[in-house]
Simulated scan of single mutants.
Amino acid sequence: MSGSDLNLHASAVVLQGRGLLIQGASGSGKSGLALSLMAHGAQLVSDDRTILTRDAGGVWMSAPAPIAGMIEARGIGLIRADCAPHAPLHAMVDLDHEERDRLPPNREISILGYSVPLLFNVSSPYFPASLVQFLKGGRRA
């Protein structure tokens, strides 16, 4: 890794060229949310460890080689998954913070010098579907 790389304890998926970084404490549901998003059409980038690399076009996500193409399914074990070798970071979900607002403010987080939308966890069965639609179409400012 170069000085413009980060290795995070996070999972990542991509849908229609827009990558979503899923961050949270151990046991917070990163892999479970990634699996739900994959069931809705997203593709795995990495599970549990994600390498972020900055270049002139933004921040790119990838998996460390030993875990590429693998995701943990609680109660089943490590399972294989088609994975994207890398994806541009479009937004981040923080599973450690619960969204309390019905219509939350637009939040951003700076990662390696680039600002991306920051979303908080929503305790709802349609949260993964909402994230899929967010990745497809964004949201109104």
Score class of each variant (00 low, 15 high):
20 L>K: 02
130 S>E: 14
128 P>T: 12
86 H>C: 05
81 A>C: 10
138 G>M: 13
134 F>K: 05
77 G>V: 04
21 L>H: 02
59 V>T: 04
48 D>W: 01
3 G>R: 00
54 R>H: 00
104 P>Q: 05
141 A>T: 07
2 S>T: 12
116 V>G: 02
31 S>A: 02
9 H>A: 09
110 S>Y: 01
115 S>M: 01
21 L>A: 00
31 S>W: 00
99 E>W: 03
122 V>P: 03
30 K>R: 11
121 N>T: 04
125 P>D: 13
3 G>P: 03
102 R>D: 04
26 S>Y: 00
80 R>W: 02
79 I>V: 15
95 L>Q: 08
25 A>D: 15
80 R>H: 14
91 A>N: 05
139 R>W: 10
131 L>M: 13
63 A>F: 02
17 G>S: 07
8 L>M: 14
101 D>C: 01
108 E>H: 12
136 K>F: 04
93 V>P: 01
56 A>M: 01
33 L>W: 04
111 I>H: 07
86 H>N: 08
75 G>Y: 03
116 V>N: 10
31 S>Y: 02
127 F>Q: 13
4 S>G: 05
43 Q>V: 15
16 Q>Y: 12
110 S>L: 11
126 Y>D: 15
106 N>P: 00
121 N>S: 14
115 S>C: 06
22 I>S: 07
68 A>W: 06
35 L>G: 07
34 A>L: 03
40 H>N: 14
41 G>T: 09
36 S>N: 14
62 S>C: 06
122 V>I: 15
106 N>R: 11
117 P>F: 08
61 M>Y: 03
109 I>L: 09
64 P>Y: 12
97 H>A: 10
122 V>C: 14
128 P>R: 13
138 G>C: 11
98 E>R: 15
98 E>Q: 14
77 G>Y: 02
7 N>D: 02
13 V>R: 00
64 P>V: 09
47 D>V: 08
123 S>A: 15
